[in-house]
Simulated scan of single mutants.
Amino acid sequence: MFSKSKINEPGSKASEAATPSAQPTAPAPSQSDFKSSTPKAKPPASVLSSDLHISGNLKTTGDIQVEGTVEGDIRAHLLTVGETATIKGEVSADDVVINGRIVGRVRGLKVRLTSTARVEGDIIHKTIAIESGAHFEGSVQRQDDPLSGSGAATKGGAQPQPAKAAEAGGK
């Protein structure tokens, strides 16, 4: 508080604050800190346009936004499924936002089905949000670590399989 009033006062006190050369060197390391964090900045999401059809698996540590069709599994940090998108395969991401259609298992720490979502398959999640109007056929299971695919052979794999059998019997 006192330093603010000294800075606001005109005259010799403002010039006294500017004379020490130690203050301009202090911001220099913080500027280099900002430079060191810029290479670590996350690249923008990879966008798969609506006219793109992919047959095969996708794996990235970054973000993916799908607007087209993917026949295969997807692993990502953040997966956004657009309204025009169709994914046939297993989806696994830290955050999954579904606006379009997924046929297959969904694994995510945070899973969100918007009002335009259509999911046919099981959802294994830590937290989930399902908006009114979303279509969902399958089972929902909460796990503390839903991304561990190897743990699916124990508790996670045993429960979703009967739900798939029930879906197949119902169709």
Rank of each mutant, 00 (worst) to 15 (best):
K126A: 08
V91W: 04
L48F: 15
P43F: 00
V97E: 07
T19K: 15
E83L: 02
E16D: 13
V111T: 10
E90S: 12
K110S: 09
D63K: 02
K126C: 07
V70G: 01
E90H: 10
A134M: 09
T114S: 12
S92Y: 01
I64E: 06
V103D: 11
A129V: 15
T116R: 10
H53A: 06
G100L: 02
G108H: 01
G104E: 02
G82M: 03
T25R: 13
I87N: 05
G56Y: 11
A18P: 02
G108K: 02
D51V: 03
V81A: 05
L79S: 02
K110Y: 05
T19L: 14
T114V: 06
E137G: 00
D94N: 12
I130C: 06
E131L: 05
V91L: 06
T116Q: 09
G82E: 07
G104V: 05
A18N: 10
V97K: 07
L52W: 04
V81W: 01
P44C: 04
A85W: 08
S50C: 00
S37K: 15
G68W: 00
G72V: 10
L78N: 13
D51K: 06
D63W: 01
P27Q: 14
K110T: 10
V119T: 10
T116M: 04
K88E: 14
S49P: 13
S92H: 08
L52P: 01
I87Q: 08
P20V: 10
I74Y: 07
G104F: 08
P24I: 12
A134Q: 09
L78F: 01
K35V: 10
E137K: 09
I64P: 03
I64N: 00
G89W: 05
I54E: 09
I64D: 05
I102C: 04
T86E: 14
V96G: 02
H135N: 06
V91D: 07
I64H: 03
D33T: 11
P27I: 14
L52S: 13
T60H: 00
V70R: 01
K42T: 15
K40G: 10
